[in-house]
């Protein structure tokens, strides 16, 4: 009859039943077959039976090795990794590793070999160069051209600009232009439109104010002129028909000039030429102011003409 033995996992699962003798006769025979072929389980059971007073102790290192083999695996792999990872070996380096090395001669040898390798490797960092290599390197590098770093470029540029200040200014102006274009608030598209609309609104309002002012001023001027005429009629020292004719000619000239200037101001503001708009609005106002009711008729005409210029 072909009897199949139990597995290591089965042994670990049924450890308590084995100690208590609670396994069946068939399982006991299968366990015996397994232990004949598995040193790890045999060692583990032997150690456990010693701990529970059921058997004399076998070789403890061998037993430990067997127990570790069926539990965590060999610790020597980890030990070597820890040995080589220590940069500055010392007594305080690793208590667990030291404990392992005390009991594991193989890892002790590996640790000693690593220490030797560590000491040897830096000495192998250099090799004797073939004869003539130094001379060849110096010869070839003396003929080689250096690639300038960006600091060298900047230094060279700075030195050449110091020698040519006008070129430096022009270069500075050229460099400044894109920055002005990029970072000036008016160049930002959204902000530009908003600013432009604000300016149009402000200047249109200004132009309207100027026009109203002009109209009011013209009205006041006509009133003043009428009062002046009345006075002159009363005084009787000018020819009445000639004076009335002169007065209406002046009013026509001034109102024509004011009208033209206000129109020009409005056109300039609507096309964004605000400075020009203000100038024309100012000219309209000057034309009104030039219509001085107290002045002589010749002077008044001159003033009106000057205002429209």
């Amino acid at each position: 009859m072909n009897r199949q033995s139990v597995s290591c996992a089965w042994v670990r699962e049924h450890l308590l039943e084995i100690f208590d003798g609670a396994i069946s006769g068939e399982d006991r025979q299968r366990l015996r077959d397994h232990l004949d072929g598995c040193e790890a389980c045999a060692g583990m059971l032997s150690e456990a039976m010693f701990d529970t007073g059921q058997a004399p102790r076998q070789d403890s290192e061998e037993s430990l090795r067997r127990i570790l083999a069926v539990t965590s695996g060999s610790p020597c792999t980890d030990a070597l990794e820890r040995i080589v990872s220590i940069e500055t070996p010392g007594p305080e380096s690793d208590e667990l590793l030291t404990g392992h090395l005390e009991h594991c001669p193989i890892c002790r040898v590996k640790a000693d070999v690593w220490e030797w390798i560590r000491a040897e490797l830096p000495a192998m960092a250099e090799m004797d160069v073939p004869a003539g290599l130094t001379a060849a390197v110096l010869d070839r590098t003396s003929r080689a051209e250096r690639e300038a770093g960006w600091r060298d470029w900047i230094r060279a540029l700075g030195e050449s600009l110091v020698r040519r200040p006008r070129a430096a200014l022009e270069l500075g102006y050229l460099f400044a232009l894109p920055f002005m274009f990029l970072f000036h608030p008016a160049a930002v598209p959204g902000h530009f439109m908003e600013t432009r609309m604000t300016h149009v609104s402000e200047f249109t309002s200004l132009a309207q104010d100027e026009a109203l002012l002009a109209a009011a001023g013209l009205g006041r001027a006509v009133d003043e002129k009428t009062r002046s005429l009345r006075t002159r009629f009363t005084q009787g020292w000018v020819d009445s028909i000639q004076t009335v004719d002169q007065f209406y000619r002046e009013i026509r000239d001034v109102s024509g000039a004011v009208k033209t200037e206000v129109k020009l101001a409005a056109t300039a503001c609507s096309t964004g030429q605000f400075d020009r708009g203000i100038r024309h609005a100012g000219a309209a106002w000057n034309a009104i102011k030039s219509f001085d009711p107290e002045a002589e008729s010749g002077d008044t005409t001159e003033g009106g003409t000057h205002g429209t210029e």
Binding site: V137, R140, T141, A144, E145, R146, E147, A148, G149, W150, R151, D152
Partner: peptide
């Protein structure tokens, strides 16, 4: 060495 010489500015 030639590469080091050329690029030493960097």
């Amino acid at each position: 060495f030639i590469r080091i010489y050329r690029k030493i500015g960097q």
